[in-house]
């Protein structure tokens, strides 16, 4: 299925959960996830399956002023 992650079009396995997507990251720092502009608490990452057209944003803290 097609998803948008951080504004980029990507294709992913149908029905993949948020946890499943994040699992692929090399790093494991703390992140916050917004699904379709709403914050998704980490307790729901495993349970939330993504659908066609979903937009996911993943943020973390970086160095900044």
């Amino acid at each position: 299925m097609n998803l948008k992650i951080n504004g980029k079009e990507v294709s992913a396995a149908a029905g993949i959960t948020v946890e499943g997507l994040l699992d692929k990251r090399p790093g494991r720092g703390r992140v916050v996830v917004a699904l379709n502009r709403t914050v998704l608490p980490d307790t729901l990452w495993e349970k939330t399956a993504l659908k066609e057209g979903d937009a996911l944003e993943i943020f973390t803290l970086f160095g900044g002023g």
Partner: peptide, 8 residues
Amino acid sequence: AALRRVDL
């Protein structure tokens, strides 16, 4: 610190 999008 700044909040930025993570590159997966």
